[in-house]
Write a protein that binds this DNA or RNA. Structure first.
Length: 227
DNA sequence: GCGACAG
DNA sequence: ATCTTGTCGC
């Protein structure tokens, strides 16, 4: 599939300016895909100065793997909270370009609209691909919230400056919740429906789990190849 | 001013 | 993210 390339900033100020500029291209119109056929998970694994990006496309109904792509690389930007996209997206975009199918939804590791400048990784990838994206974070980043009820499906608002920017969603009974926020072309309600559909037996979406495993094994391969 | 801070 | 053993529970 076709994907716009990532503009590589040299400084934090430049990176923030890029986010502010791209934010105007965000489509926050819902509801987004109601019944996606293909859902993709993306993730990146690191080791010193090496990394491996991975994309896994699943059949949304069966959760079977349809396609997998990995790309070895080097981090192009240090990790700075709020600028994660500049570290992970260059390689992820390469991986997505090698996909022979086009997913109907991309599930990202991290945040989307729930971000200091309202433009997290999921928003950024959405604008570059033009595809619906959502962000699923494992830990708190920005925003305040109350603990949701203990049962799967329970949720609470993730508030930032008095605005609802996401949801703290319980995907398994009595298990630590995840942080869901919209990326591009999907509304929050629909995003949470998809996250629940992707978590029939684990806390994290099957897309995230599959991409995480793939990126780690690809990293080991990359380390063996260029030591 | 001092911490906190997606992955 | 990554460094790491055993252990409790479905």
């Amino acid at each position: 599939m076709e994907v716009c390339s990532v503009t590589a900033p040299a400084t934090v100020e430049e990176a923030e300016a890029i986010q502010d500029a791209l934010r105007s291209r965000l489509d926050l119109t819902g509801p987004g895909p109601r019944d996606p056929a293909l859902v993709a998970g993306v993730d990146v694994a690191y080791s010193d100065d090496l990394l491996a990006a991975a994309v896994v496309v699943l059949d949304a109904a069966s959760l079977d793997v349809v396609e997998r792509v990995t790309v070895p690389g080097r981090p192009a930007f240090d990790y700075v909270p709020g600028l994660l996209a500049f570290r992970e997206l260059p390689s992820l975009v390469e991986a997505l370009e090698r996909l022979t199918v086009t997913p109907d939804l991309i599930v990202c590791d991290g945040y989307g609209l729930a971000h200091p400048r309202r433009f997290g990784l999921a928003c950024h990838l959405g604008v570059l691909t033009g595809l619906p994206t959502i962000g699923v974070g494992k830990t708190a980043f920005v925003g305040s919230f109350e603990q949701p009820g203990r049962e799967r499906g329970a949720w609470s608002d993730l508030l930032l400056d008095g605005e609802v920017t996401g949801r703290v969603l319980r995907t398994r009974d009595g298990v630590k919740p995840v942080f869901v926020s919209v990326g591009h072309r999907v509304d929050l309600e629909t995003a949470c429906r998809h996250v629940l559909a992707l978590t029939p037996r684990h806390r994290l979406p099957e897309t995230t789990r599959a991409a995480d495993r793939l990126s780690r094994t690809a990293l080991k391969t990359a380390m063996a190849g260029s030591p």
